[in-house]
């Protein structure tokens, strides 16, 4: 699967994919999925903030992958791409993975040596 953190301006902060082959396709997929993330954020509007529901759910399925989205209150976007055939991952697992990812991201932000907006380097941002 693939994880991606992207900031407000859809600039990628962190991309990691396992396995590493076919990375390009993942990148395209994630980038395209930001369309749906944006759409969902726009649709939710204020309600999103009020409800504190950061998980956006399944963004869209493709033939091979499922793309899930998550957005923080500061509009930092997390996207996760999972193989469609991997049925072991249910919604709840995805949700908790996102939450862990969010925590890790918060840790990175707390690092005083981290320059906001930089690509996140060498961080075990894995779930």
């Amino acid at each position: 699967y693939l994880q991606c953190v992207s900031d407000l301006a859809n600039y990628p902060l962190y991309i990691r994919s396992i396995p590493t082959e076919n990375q390009l396709k993942f990148h395209y997929t994630v980038h395209t999925s930001l369309d749906v993330v944006d759409e969902k954020i726009a649709a939710m509007g204020k309600a999103l903030v009020d409800q504190r529901e950061l998980y956006l759910g399944l963004l869209y399925p493709t033939e091979d992958y499922k793309v899930y989205g998550y957005v923080t209150n500061s509009k930092v976007k997390f996207v996760m791409v999972v193989d469609s055939s991997n049925t072991a991952l249910r919604d709840n697992e995805i949700r908790s993975m996102f939450r862990k990812l969010h925590n890790s991201y918060t840790d990175v932000m707390c690092n005083p040596f981290y320059n906001p907006g930089d690509t996140i380097q060498s961080r075990p941002l894995c779930v």
Partner: peptide
Amino acid sequence: MYQSEGWALPLTH
């Protein structure tokens, strides 16, 4: 677009 959003791999491709 890839350039403005900084997606390196798609950009290169």
